[in-house]
């Protein structure tokens, strides 16, 4: 098991390296440069050139890349041009916030998705199934950014039950309850699509499993129906669902940009959007690296979980 994990971790290194090259290349292709972003309206070509030179951006791209790589290996992710702050500080702060949001969403979507999927499969063609199928369709068809805005309008402005934005109350805030109140809407909005996907998949997997011979055997043994569903069928279905949860984790990590924008969640998705817009190369590099690494890591966890559930994979 550990050897397997070790091998997988080592295999991620070339992927991360490849990514860093792609990002460097991509940022090079984007017209504009950090100096223009910093100088704003006062960006004359002369000022820009001077600033670029100060920031070390006039060196050839390949050289810049290796400088960055060298620094990275020594634990230094560089300094953000636009924010004038060490990249590592910014990236890990923002990433922490995203992890909280992503974590909450994942928990929500896993729980509700699995429950809904099981309920629909067990009462196939009954009302539960129809309602779940319907809700799933709504879930995968709703634009999340639109939904977020509607929720804010309803819960924050009209009813004033929940705060409209941010991660903590601005004064005297902090603490888990405060966090939960701020987390409620963004996590739910983010979880909607993932829940639908997981519910749909769980239902299909459960139906598939319930057709199997070993379910018949379980019934023939006189096992209670509840045990048949939740222990026999669900465990087998889980094997197919786990990789999807892994994929949703990745999606939620890097793709929560709309949610972060609408709810002003200080997450890494929005940081990256801004960083691209301000041509903050080092920040983009750092951010993409961290997100990609975590994505790979989550997939690894999903694979390991799958192996734990299904001994045939070992």
């Amino acid at each position: 098991m550990w050897i397997y994990i070790g091998k997988r971790l080592i295999a991620t290194v070339p992927i991360l390296l490849g990514l860093s090259v792609i990002v460097f290349g991509m940022m090079a292709l984007i017209p504009g440069d950090p100096a223009t972003a910093i100088l704003g309206s006062y960006a004359t070509p002369e000022n820009v050139e001077r600033l670029n030179s100060q920031l070390g951006l006039d060196k050839p791209l390949v050289e810049q890349y290796f400088i960055w790589l060298g620094n990275l290996l020594q634990g230094d992710m560089g300094r953000s041009y636009a924010l004038n702050r060490p990249v590592a500080d910014e990236v890990f702060e923002r990433f922490g916030a995203t992890l909280v949001l992503a974590g909450a969403s994942l928990i929500l979507c896993s729980i509700f998705g699995l429950i809904a999927g099981i309920a629909a499969a067990v009462r196939q063609f009954g009302w539960t199934d129809r309602i779940v199928t319907f809700l799933v369709l709504i879930g995968i068809s709703t634009p999340s950014f639109w939904l977020g805005l509607l929720l804010i309008m309803l819960f924050a402005v009209e009813l004033q039950w929940l705060p409209a934005s941010g991660m903590f109350a601005i004064y005297g805030g902090g603490g888990p309850l405060d966090l939960l109140r701020h987390l409620a809407m963004p996590a739910v909005t983010l979880a909607v699509v993932a829940t639908a996907v997981i519910a749909r998949l769980t239902r299909a997997a459960m139906l598939e499993v319930l057709r199997q011979d070993y379910i018949r055997t379980a019934r023939a043994k006189g096992v209670s129906e509840r045990r048949v569903i939740y222990r026999h069928a669900f465990k087998a279905a889980l094997v197919s669902v786990i990789p999807v949860i892994g994929i949703q984790a990745g999606f939620v990590l890097g793709g929560a940009v709309y949610i972060e924008t609408v709810f002003q969640w200080p997450g890494i998705g929005r940081m990256l959007v801004n960083a691209i817009s301000t041509r903050d190369l080092l920040l983009v590099q750092g951010g993409v690296l961290v997100v990609a690494a975590s994505y790979v890591f989550f997939n690894l966890i999903a694979d390991v979980a799958q192996t734990i559930v299904d001994p045939r994979l070992r």
């Binding site: 805005l149 309008m153 924050a156 409209a164 934005s165 941010g166 601005i170 002003q264």
Partner: peptide
């Protein structure tokens, strides 16, 4: 006694916060 500056980049959200007393 103090001033807190909150960055809210999205104009809509800013309006929502204003309306909800944030």
């Amino acid at each position: 006694q103090a001033v807190v500056f909150r960055p809210i980049t999205d104009a809509n959200t800013r309006v929502a916060e204003m309306l909800s007393g944030g």
